[in-house]
Write a protein that binds this DNA or RNA. Structure first.
Length: 901
DNA sequence: TTCCTTTTCCC
DNA sequence: CGGGAAAAGGA
């Protein structure tokens, strides 16, 4: 029966498994049970196992795993194998020995959850029905493809047991009672200091070597000098290439006979466990950046703060995804070693985008990349914006249309425009009071379609091209008087540019009087209209008047920009001009940007010119235009704190044109961010009511409005956000601070506000049913840290099934008192050893102990327990104290009592 | 010496 | 615990 070794489920073995250099004929023998073992149909290690033929290497698994599918026959029973039920977490802080005092949390399972359920690495032995031992030990990760050729790691996998630490390997007995499952809990990883690496490796290798000797020689003996030397050489070689920041767990299953360990099956290895504290394996993260945009030609200097990196092992990667998430472009930030500051900041220059001539924002991503292991940070939003060249005087967009700018002739004009009916907006035109005569005049003019084309050419040329003809219709040729008679010249001819209402950034309009194109445009237009031009000519004329060089200042301001500064004048001209543009011109004429990227709308908002603003909106100017900083009129409105009327007007325009108000400017902020930052509660409410995303995060740092309100210590807005919006309380900024953490960080004993903020958040969380501990890093994590009791490595079916243990811990919640029987049992143990005194101390009853109140009674422990429970100490608390005092037996008794409840 | 990285220490 | 940082080591 034994000669049938391998079977259909050989898939557990690596494909190239049979390559091992051993005699396949041995294989059946290897599975023969040792003499003294109970005869069994199951495989057992063979006591006759021969020494491997290869040189000793401690990590090599005995060759019994080898098989040759050609030699073996098929058998019905599946082969034993190990299955990982729960891998360990992939990040863990390796602690130096000197750091191991106190409790420092154990190596949890990957699915372990702080608040819910703690899990541990665990494996299951399948297809095996006898008592077995499952071993967990620390191996190097990634050195070899196959688990069975992994090499030992020099770090120590220690298991807390009471006060002492047990080094790996850790053996757990399994049998059918525990479902052949082994849980490995309370383990930690000790970072072996460099100088101890070789001795540590030798220590571990010696253990394995001795086991191997016992296996092959059926006896235990110390190593020979030669063997020791051999190991030392290997250890020294290993120590040179060992990666100290990555380990993995390896699990082996053994059948133990006479204390000799015979492998049952192939070992399994966990995925990598990375050292959380190391810059080589720690999390990569961009915590903050000082810019989130770059001109598309690249070269912008950007400072980013990052989690620990090493200068020689870090890159800043930019990439772009298309709609299907395919990467369509990548490049790297430019920097040298010197630009990495103390492992926590990088100063670099952006790479150029693939196109140097983009005309609108391109969204890409930025992330950190670690060449050594290919790890990446979470990518952050980043944008390329048109470079100065293409922004600035945004004439390009217009001139890209087939005609316009220079030197067109009449024949080249598209005829199609002629067909546009002059659907003059009567409402607009007649709305303006007492405008009737003039507008009628113009209207009449418009109706005429019979302008002499040669005359038109002259006009056009005069406006656009240089040459003798240009003077014909210039302002000087039309007397002011004449204009006045037409009612088209304001009585405030001294149209001095007013200072903007707000911060002085509107220098753009401060130009000399002669440069101001308003009057000139006005007279041109009037003269032109007198000629009763055709629709298409009106259109071209408008284009010339608005975007033509002649009427544009060196700062790129045109007449529409200048009109923004004409506040409060109910000027017929303005109304007419806008109406003309709306009806005969191209919409883009309203959106021409000046050198700062501002459209007339920006300026209208900035100057607080509500009337004009409404006019522009009515004429369908683009409400979402962005200036050079990416600010929309809404951004401008909020930054400049314009009067509410203006703000409402702009918002209304967004609303009516169904435009998303969450536009990010090039500083990575939406208007809402600016409102909250400006402590502008009113605007904050308005924006949110208009559909702004309350949870939008700023692009430089990930702050949401909630973060901002807290950072600003702005209680009004904070309350509003919490009470009246869907602001999420668990959102994290780039540095992984959620609002509550931020508030905690802000706590300042000298500042009552900070306490108020914290408690507002806390009570809000309580209200919505989120335990605030969940959001705090140093959360009091559930006392489920259990049983230092029971089970040690060797014999005995210690069968520490942790799931059972965890169940116990759950049960503790329901048990409020000790049973009398339990108290008596505990007294039996603790009374005479005086351990009850220590327990009393631990429970903070020292003062009572000194009164000898307990010492006098027959069962001091029993009294103490009664007293403790009466004074609010929970059974669990007491149990844990005993565990700390290393009273294993007592703990066990309590556990048993709880189990029975 | 200086500049980093590793190890220890502390809250 | 997890974070921060000083002290010690190394080149």
């Amino acid at each position: 029966m034994f000669e049938l070794g391998i079977l259909s489920n050989s898939i557990h073995l690596p494909a190239n498994f049979e390559k091992t250099d051993l005699d396949m004929n041995l294989y059946p023998n290897l599975l023969t049970p040792p003499m003294d073992s109970p005869t069994s149909s199951m495989m057992s290690p063979d006591s006759d196992c021969r020494s491997p033929t290869h040189l000793f290497t401690p990590y090599q698994v005995p060759h019994i795993y080898s098989y040759n599918p050609d030699v073996v026959t098929i058998r019905d029973l599946p082969e034993p194998c190990l299955r990982m039920r729960e891998p360990p977490v992939d990040k863990f802080r390796f602690r130096y020995k000197s750091e191991m005092s106190g409790t420092h949390g154990s190596l949890n399972g990957k699915t372990s959850d702080r608040s819910r359920k703690q899990t541990f690495p665990s494996v299951e032995l399948l297809n095996y029905d006898k008592e077995a031992v499952i071993r967990c030990s620390l191996y190097q990760y990634g050195r070899e493809d196959m688990a069975h050729t992994r090499q030992l790691h020099a770090h120590r996998l220690v298991k807390k047991q009471g006060t002492d630490e047990i080094d790996d390997p850790h053996n757990v007995h399994v049998n059918s009672d525990v479902g052949f499952v082994a849980n490995f809990h309370s383990m930690g990883i000790i970072h072996t200091a460099r100088k101890y690496i070789v001795p540590e490796l030798i220590r571990k290798m010696t253990i394995l070597k001795q086991e191997e000797i016992a296996r092959s020689e059926h006896k235990f003996r110390p190593l020979t000098k030669k063997e020791e030397l051999e190991m030392k050489t290997i250890a020294e070689k290993e120590s040179k290439c060992i990666n100290l920041n990555v380990v993995c767990l390896r699990f082996d299953a053994y059948r133990v006979v006479n204390n000799i360990y015979y492998p049952i099956c192939q070992p399994v290895s966990s995925p990598a466990i990375n050292n959380l504290k190391s810059a080589l394996t720690g999390d990569l993260r961009i915590v903050r950046m000082d810019h989130c945009t770059s001109p598309c030609r690249g070269g912008r200097e950007i400072f980013i703060l990052v989690e620990k990196v090493t200068k020689k092992n870090i890159k800043v990667r930019f990439f772009e995804l298309d709609d299907e998430d395919n990467e369509v472009w990548e490049d790297y930030g430019r920097f040298s070693d010197l630009d990495v500051h103390h492992q926590y900041a990088i100063v670099f220059k952006t790479p150029p985008y693939k196109h140097a001539d983009i005309d609108k924002e391109v969204r890409v991503f930025i992330e950190l990349q670690r060449p050594s292991d290919g790890a990446r940070s979470e990518p952050k939003d980043f944008s390329y914006i048109p470079s100065e060249m293409s922004i600035g005087r945004k004439r390009t967009r217009l001139s890209s249309d087939d005609y316009t700018t220079s030197f067109f002739s009449a024949d080249e004009l598209p005829i199609t425009l002629n067909t546009i009916s002059p659907s003059v907006d009567h409402e607009t035109m007649t709305n303006a009071n007492n405008a009737t005569i003039n507008s009628a005049d113009l209207e009449a003019a418009l109706k005429h379609n019979n302008i002499d084309s040669s005359e038109f050419d002259k006009i056009c040329n005069s406006l656009i091209g240089p040459g003798p003809m240009r003077d014909i219709f210039t302002a000087e040729n039309v007397s002011i008087r004449e204009l006045k008679s037409l009612g088209l010249v304001m009585d405030t001819p001294n149209s001095k540019i007013r200072t903007p209402l707000h911060s002085g950034k509107t220098e753009k309009l401060s130009v000399t009087e002669e440069e101001n194109p308003i009057d000139r445009v006005k007279s041109e237009l009037i003269s032109f209209m007198k000629t009763s031009p055709s629709n298409n000519r009106v259109s071209l004329m408008l284009e010339a008047l608005i975007s033509g060089d002649k009427y544009t200042t060196s700062n790129g301001n045109n007449v529409l920009h200048f009109l923004a500064a004409e506040i409060g004048t109910e000027d017929e001209f303005v109304t007419q001009l806008l109406s003309f543009v709306k009806n005969f011109g191209k919409k883009e004429l309203l959106n021409v940007k000046n050198i700062n990227g501002q459209s007339p709308l920006h300026l209208a908002v900035e100057f607080g010119n509500e009337l004009y603003l409404k006019g522009l909106i009515e004429a369908q100017a683009d409400i979402a235009v962005q200036d050079k900083q990416g600010n929309t009129p809404l951004h401008v409105a909020i930054v400049d704190r314009v009067p509410e009327g203006i703000l409402l007007t702009v918002l209304d325009a967004y609303h009516r044109s169904n435009t998303n108000i969450d536009i990010y400017n090039y500083d990575g902020k939406t208007p809402l961010h600016l409102a909250v930052r400006g402590k502008n509660l009113n605007a904050t409410k308005l924006f949110i009511n208009c559909g702004a995303n309350v949870n939008a995060a700023e692009k430089k740092n990930g702050y949401t409005p909630l973060h901002l309100a807290i950072l600003n210590r702005n209680i009004d807005i904070l309350k509003y956000l919490l009470d009246s919006t869907k602001a999420e309380c668990d959102c994290e900024d780039f540095a992984q601070y959620n609002p509550l953490l931020l508030a905690q960080e802000l706590l300042d004993s000298c500042d009552k506000q900070t306490f108020q903020i914290f408690s507002i958040l806390e009570s809000h969380l309580k209200k919505i049913g989120i335990p605030s501990e969940m959001l705090l890093h140093n959360r009091v994590h559930s006392e489920s840290d259990e049983n230092d009791d029971e089970e040690d490595c060797s014999n005995n079916n210690n069968s520490a099934d942790d799931e059972a243990n965890i169940d116990i811990i759950d049960k503790y919640g329901a048990v409020t008192d000790f049973t009398d029987a339990c108290k008596i049992s505990l007294s039996d143990i603790l009374d005479k050893s005086d351990a009850w005194k220590r327990l009393g101390e631990s429970l903070d009853f020292g003062h009572i102990l000194h009164t000898d109140a307990f010492a006098a009674v027959q069962h001091p422990t029993k009294s103490l327990l009664t007293f403790a429970v009466a004074n609010g100490r929970s059974v669990k608390e007491i149990r844990d104290c005993l565990a700390t005092l290393n009273e294993k037996q007592a703990v066990e008794i309590i556990d048993k009592m709880v189990m029975k409840c």
